[in-house]
Design a protein around this nucleic acid. Structure first.
Lengths: 209, 209
DNA sequence: AGTTAAACTAGACACTGTCAAGTCATCGTC
DNA sequence: GACGATGACTTGACAGTGTCTAGTTTAACT
């Protein structure tokens, strides 16, 4: 009778929680060596199953990474909600908190964050990924609406102002992670936070006029 | 006598310009299918040589992609010089031109641009890559110094102002390329240019106070 | 002309992703 | 409880990859 064996201990043929185990293995492998070294076979080995097993849950590597990216957007959304809830109640302070959560998410989980924007490795038709990403965006846009509303700014300013704020924080996050010249001029994670807060302070008049 | 053959025509054993042929094949393959589908073997096939030949010139795939990225930074530098030379002579107009060149480079050559920031696939100890990247940065920083100098701003503003401007343009470029929600709200390349010019107009007081 | 080094070719090896056939366990129905 | 269907795996095959090594050919140098 064929039974899976890991470390000499028989394990049941049906894993029972293989989907979660594969996602956990994905996180461990990304943290260890980054996306470029990630392989589905190694992921299956870490989860203690054969190389064909993941196909039942995710289809292929793209499906697994897409599910992992959806989780990452959910974690980002949880973090932005948390930071905004703990910020001062004025709209601009909540916008700053939203951005700081984004920056902390990126700098705290660099490989997760990088994957989230790998349009070539993700399945953008995946409903869970779409929902999670849209939820994060909607929260950010609502936050910006509150800022502009409180300042009496016209609706036409929403597009440029969201583009400005998102570009600023996303640019800062990606340059901190992937550009040595930028990162060494800013410093460590704490220095990046301080720089971001400073830039948002300087930029305040652009949103509140 | 062993001779390489391409399309039934004998070619000499020594290619003569294999380095350039491999870089050209790299560009073609990246433009066709992106970095994820790029393989060194296919690149060698396109250049008409065996799979071992690139090793003599580049060592491995990382070496080839690093040389290609160095070329990309050189092209970016040429474009920023060109745009700045053709801009109005006032410092802020030259800064805007510098950023617009950056944005046009990214949106016009998405796969090249993406590779330039793939810290996991490039050799950052490579002198040619370092020189090319530093040259682009130095030009941008000189430009920013001129803006701040003309406005009578203190030296301490250089760090935050370069971080702000670079984050804004880099964030916009990367979100246009890899985030569908951002890109569909902005529109096409021309709309992105217009948006960027608008954001730089709005941001002007942060640099010239 | 002879020697050395550069510039390749060709093959081997281990690993990968994907697919298909087969096996085992669970679930639903009778 | 038996049976069939389906889910959840294992196993193997295949084509492709990157890297390394041995060997061959040509260019450069003396």
């Amino acid at each position: 009778m064929a039974k899976r064996e890991t470390s000499g201990v028989e394990t049941p043929y049906h894993h029972g929680a293989l989907r979660e185990a594969l996602l956990a293995a994905t996180e461990a492998l990304l943290d260890e060596a980054g996306l470029e070294k990630f392989t589905l076979r190694e992921c299956a080995r870490r989860a203690g199953v054969s190389h064909g097993a993941p196909a039942h849950h995710f289809g292929d590597a793209r499906g697994l990474l897409t599910a992992f990216a959806a989780q990452s957007f959910e974690q980002l959304g949880a973090r932005t909600s948390d930071y905004m809830a703990r910020a001062e109640k004025r709209p601009y302070e909540r916008l700053v908190a939203n951005g700081l959560a984004y920056l902390d998410h990126a700098l705290g989980n660099p490989h997760r964050f990088r994957l989230m924007f790998r349009s070539d490795r993700l399945d953008h038709t995946d409903p869970a990924l779409g929902r999670a990403a849209i939820a994060v965006y909607d929260q950010f846009e609502s936050c910006m609406r509150a800022v502009l509303g409180a300042a009496g700014r016209p609706d036409a300013d929403l597009g440029p102002c969201t583009a400005l704020a998102w570009s600023l924080v996303h640019g800062m996050a990606t340059l901190m992670l992937d550009n040595g010249m930028f990162a060494c001029r800013v410093g460590d994670h704490e220095a990046a936070r301080a720089m971001f807060l400073d830039l948002m302070r300087r930029s305040r008049p652009l949103f509140e006029g």
